[in-house]
């Protein structure tokens, strides 16, 4: 079963991290990924919500930023291929130990179409 692990955190906190702190957190999460290497699929880190634009379907209304003004923002997600929800939760707990604060939402994946395209600096 494919599970997505959605990462939520307060952007006021994560954008206040120093470059070194940010790099350290990413390095710690990377270690967890390496431990789960056989089961981790694509990993996505999203740009801050200030770079987001939302299209509200019913009114064809475009607004700046995420549609929902929630305190904890979706910052990125992992896709893991594991047998059970318990195992997916174990992965999320591992991530949480590496980077406390915020929340992880574990949600089963319905459709999965990876194409290996890179992002801001992942393309090279």
């Amino acid at each position: 079963m494919l599970y997505s692990t959605l990462c939520y955190h307060d952007e006021a906190v994560t954008t206040a991290w120093s470059a070194e702190h940010d790099a350290a957190v990413i390095a710690d999460l990377r270690k967890v990924q390496d431990r789960w290497a056989a089961k981790v699929g694509p990993v996505v880190r999203l740009m801050p919500t200030s770079a987001a634009t939302t299209l509200r379907k019913t009114e064809n209304l475009v607004i700046d930023g995420p549609f929902a003004e929630t305190k904890e923002q979706l910052l990125g997600f992992y896709v893991v291929d594991v047998a059970t929800l318990d195992e997916a939760l174990a992965f999320a707990r591992d991530l949480a130990a590496a980077n406390p604060g915020g929340a992880y939402e574990v949600r089963p994946v319905m459709l999965y179409q990876p194409d290996g395209r890179g992002g801001a600096d992942g393309g090279a």
């Binding site: 006021a12 906190v13 206040a16 991290w17 702190h21 949480a96 130990a97 406390p100 604060g101």
Partner: peptide
């Protein structure tokens, strides 16, 4: 839940500072 690291608290305080 695991106890947060002290530097995690530091980050929270920095982030909370303008609003507080």
């Amino acid at each position: 839940m695991a106890a947060p690291e002290p530097d995690w608290i530091e980050a929270r305080l920095v982030a909370a500072r303008p609003r507080a």
